[in-house]
Amino acid sequence: MYKLNLNTQDFLALHWQKTPLVIKNAFTDFIDPISADELAGLACEEEISSRVIITKNDGWDIIQGPIEDYDQFGDDNWQLLVQAVNHWFPDSVDLVEAFRFIPDWRFDDLMVSFATPGGGVGPHIDNYDVFLLQGEGTRRWKVGARGDYSPRGGDTHTALIDDFEPIIDVVLEKGDMLYIPPGYPHRGETITTALSYSIGYRAPSQQELMSGLADHLLDTNTGSQRFISENEPKMPASLSIAHQTGILALLQDLLAQPQHYQQMLGQLLSQNRFELDLCEPEQEYSAADLASALSEGARLVRIGGLKVISLEGDTQSRLFINGEEFELNIDQDELAHIANQMCLDNDKMLAFTDSVELKKFLLTMLNVGYYYLA
């Protein structure tokens, strides 16, 4: 169990999405949830996103995974990055739990890096919030002020920028952590061979929201209302201000209707960017199988990285799970319990199976591989 040494309310009020913060001894007696060899093993897998970054005198080379041979990289000036480790390595899930004072819908993934001395990523700017937690070894981090920075080499398709003047220059040791909000330039350099953990949070962009709304309207065959005008401009080629605002008001009208934006947000924000390690059973569970497992003390555990989202003030009784909508006409307290708990204990499960609808839902979760019996 990982306990974060941080006053979370003060952090949310003073620093979250505002200013960077160095948190020394964020975790007392921190124990790495994964070893370098185990991380390297994950990077061998085709379905897991990984890469090696090699530091050179004139820049950085990126080698995309899967990675099987590390001898080619030598003893220094490179690092391995593996995305969504919490999806594939159950022992890392407890670390993510320590950060659930930030809403689940924002959470992106747990990225883990193994870096040799001199390994690192150049100065860059991210568009998401990140906690950088140090495991074994030491790394030096520099953070600059928000501002206008030139993309490295004029390449606007990369997050890399020209160098910056640091406002933070710190060496992180085991258990130390650095928080960086969006828009702050930063760079890391490994001093001694290190394991590091990046806990990232992102919010949808305007592009993603508009795309999500368009998908929702197409899927539900709604949003077919067209603009009707009360008067026409005198010039035939003119698109009047009244017409411009009237056309855009059609969008505003859609976004004011919960039946449109709630479903769109629930589906969009419960999706993952990275593949999940689904635990689909070899044979589908039956109601009798579930009852037998529960009689032996089984619990129902959510797979790593699965997002279960409920909407405050929802017009319907439902949960959004991995981009899907599940209607559940049950007590709101029960709905909230399922959404908030990573593990449904045996007593709760036994109570849930008294309900035909809940039993059907639990069996669905097991048979699609979103939960497993433990």
Rank of each mutant, 00 (worst) to 15 (best):
I199G: 09
G122L: 07
S50P: 03
A36I: 02
D69L: 04
A291T: 06
E189C: 12
W60T: 05
E280K: 13
A249I: 06
L6N: 10
F164L: 05
N5V: 07
K360V: 13
K24V: 11
K348F: 09
N340S: 08
E282V: 15
P103Q: 00
L254M: 01
V130H: 13
I34R: 14
G188K: 05
E312W: 02
G175Y: 04
E232C: 02
L328H: 04
A298Q: 02
W141C: 06
W105M: 09
N86W: 04
E173V: 05
R299C: 03
I241S: 08
R152A: 06
P33A: 01
G154P: 11
A115T: 07
L42V: 07
L39T: 04
D94Q: 15
D10C: 05
H87L: 15
N86G: 05
Q9V: 08
E97S: 05
V301G: 02
V121H: 03
I321M: 05
F89V: 07
N77T: 12
K359A: 11
A339R: 07
K360C: 13
T193H: 14
A115S: 10
T245R: 12
Q72H: 03
E46I: 00
S196D: 12
S205C: 10
S355P: 14
G212W: 07
E282D: 12
F11K: 12
R139H: 11
H243G: 13
V52C: 10
G119T: 01
W78F: 15
I34W: 02
G147D: 09
G223C: 03
